[in-house]
Write a protein that binds this DNA or RNA. Structure first.
Length: 272
DNA sequence: CAACGGACCTGCCTGC
DNA sequence: TGCAGGCAGGTCCGTT
């Protein structure tokens, strides 16, 4: 489900309900996520006030002052803000109850997500230390990409989706960004000229900004914290549009092809 | 190092 | 209607 825009949408949705509120109870129903959930999470959190909800890459960071709860939504995870007493459904793995009146509920059918505690600076946690810059970080630049790409013979789409290169660009937004920049997704990263990397940097930021402003993309089951879908799906220009006319050049038909084990969408006319 | 295949899970859709 | 097969928005690990 979530790439960066969906995670950021979730963050903005839940933060106002939770920041400055004290945890009154924690319910862990299922510990078997990508990394085990600490069954004794309650001991760490009960009575403690959540200071801030932040985001790094696709991780949500719940800062409790004496430590941070690191949350990842994997492919199918979601966080919802609910009233206490809302019936628990299948795959509702963890509840954080705030002041007996707000429930933050983690649901994750495929269990590729995680929820782990760290008492230290989360930036130093092994999950986060290898991550590349945020897309809006000035360090994410044409110079940076061109330099890194010198040793990369693989497809530029896989390069762009590599979290060590830049964070937050998943399968949907990689296709969308490359389309806007006019770069063929299968082109070897080292064969992309610096000027075209400049266009790609702009395209990535533009696509992510727009997607966030639309509340993310709902393909099948992504819902925001309030249960509403994200509306960026209507703005997608290539993803899941195989056979349709290209909205950029008007002449090509969108094609689909597996690149780096992931389905990819592009216009063979205007992406080279 | 980088590239690649596979693994981890469940649900949903398609086609027979 | 039932069932097998394929596919899904993400990472991580082992091998080459």
């Amino acid at each position: 489900m979530p790439e960066l825009p969906e995670v950021e949408t979730t963050r903005r949705g839940v933060a106002p309900h939770l920041e400055g509120r004290r945890v009154s109870a924690v319910h862990v129903r299922e510990t078997r996520l990508r990394q085990p959930v600490d069954p004794a999470l309650a001991r760490l959190l009960e009575g403690v006030t959540l200071q801030r909800v932040q985001r790094r890459a696709k991780y949500l960071l719940l800062d409790f002052g004496h430590g941070t709860l690191i949350v990842h939504l994997g492919m199918s995870g979601s966080l919802r803000v609910l009233e206490p007493g809302t019936p628990v459904q299948k795959h509702d793995h963890v509840d954080l109850v705030f002041e007996e009146r707000t429930v933050l509920r983690l649901r994750d059918p495929r269990r590729f997500g995680l929820m782990v505690w760290t008492p230290d600076d989360p930036a130093q946690h092994p999950l986060l230390t290898e991550l590349g810059p945020e897309p809006w970080d000035p360090a994410f630049s044409a110079d940076y990409l061109a330099e890194l790409a010198r040793s990369r013979s693989g497809a530029v789409k896989s390069f762009l989706m590599d979290g060590k290169v830049v964070v937050g660009v998943g399968n949907i937004y990689a296709s969308e960004s490359l389309h806007r920049a006019g770069i063929h997704p299968a082109r070897p990263a080292r064969r992309v000229a610096k000027a075209r990397y400049a266009a790609l940097v702009d395209a990535v930021r533009e696509v992510l900004d727009q997607a966030i402003s639309f509340g993310g993309t709902t393909l099948r089951d992504f819902t925001r914290d309030d249960g509403k879908p994200g509306y960026f799906r209507n703005e997608l220009r290539v993803y899941d549009r195989a056979g349709a006319q290209c909205l950029r050049c008007g002449t090509g038909a969108i094609r689909q092809r597996v690149i780096g084990q992931r389905m990819s969408y592009f216009c063979p006319q205007c992406q080279r």
